[in-house]
Design a protein around this nucleic acid. Sequence first.
DNA 1: GCTTGCATGTAACCGGTTACATGATTGT
DNA 2: ACAATCATGTAACCGGTTACATGCAAGC
Lengths: 183, 183
Amino acid sequence: MDIKTLCLGVLCLHDASGYEIRRVFEQAFSHFHGAGYGSIYPALDKLTAEGLVSCELQHQDKRPDRKLFKVTPAGREHFRQALTQALPGEKIRSDFLVQMFFAHLMGTHELADALDRFEQELEGKRIYLRSLIERKDLTPGMRFGVEYGLATVSAKLDVIRRRRGALLENHLDAGKVDFDAPL
Amino acid sequence: MDIKTLCLGVLCLHDASGYEIRRVFEQAFSHFHGAGYGSIYPALDKLTAEGLVSCELQHQDKRPDRKLFKVTPAGREHFRQALTQALPGEKIRSDFLVQMFFAHLMGTHELADALDRFEQELEGKRIYLRSLIERKDLTPGMRFGVEYGLATVSAKLDVIRRRRGALLENHLDAGKVDFDAPL
DNA sequence: GCTTGCATGTAACCGGTTACATGATTGT
DNA sequence: ACAATCATGTAACCGGTTACATGCAAGC
């Protein structure tokens, strides 16, 4: 699902400027998708050109002008299509797990450091997701997403905390891995 | 961590051809990183040009010729550096969670379908990771990675199975989400 | 005076995916 | 006969990240 489609989705929730869309990405999506201005503004241009959103310039006192985008009926329908036709999947790119995979090539101190840092990062996410789940204005789907994120983060923290000691003690045992054996 | 570095890492485990490296990606990494030939072969060319790996042509009877790549001492050191200096993080891009987030815009049937498909995909991953964990030749770090993956997948499956019914019953309650409220 | 927040953009770059091209051998 | 496995590559394309550029208002 590309950023263009995601912007369209956010605009199906309510009208917004590019700046606001970014905030929604940050606040509501950040645990499963990221996006910066460099992809959002061009995406909005394309959506406008395709007639899926309309754009109206707003003057504001004591604040910079802003462009308010609204979904057109065609845009709403387009998003529904894209949403239902997408195949539900997840792409993960974990530098943390790369480090664990090659842990026997790291020093014990550096390994401990990587584990600590990542644990802290996860802890931050967990706190954030716990605060999100308190909100009363989430749709059932959004709440589901937050619970899913929370369960995932908790499971990860649990493994890290339970296995950390043992890993640090024997990570240098390289063994011989046979990748020719049928996995 | 880019594919070039990851190839170098695999070659730190044992000498291999591009084709074999791809198999390692598939069999050992696939749950946290992906790569196809289109990125591996160019990466190996660059590594060779930089003197981080050496390349030797092998003739084989009854099989196509292959290029056997080996890490040089410089390459091994380069990988150790990259590994320890990388900051441990994870990037997730979940079309599944996008669908859940906008579940109120989907039909009940399509939503059920998305949940079922994704559940099946996770179940496949779980079975695969369980078979991996049986292996006796994994390093402690690799075993840690598999356990981490298994715990994560199990937690996800658990949420899906526990919340599926309730979500399908009331996903159409759109409510009014206020993204201006401080999250 | 400095930082933070609001607000919009662009251009270069990069890394990776997809699709295509080739070809022998082995197993069903 | 047909599909799968081994084996290497290229070229086009695409989507996203990074860094830069600008500017005003409010609060510390």
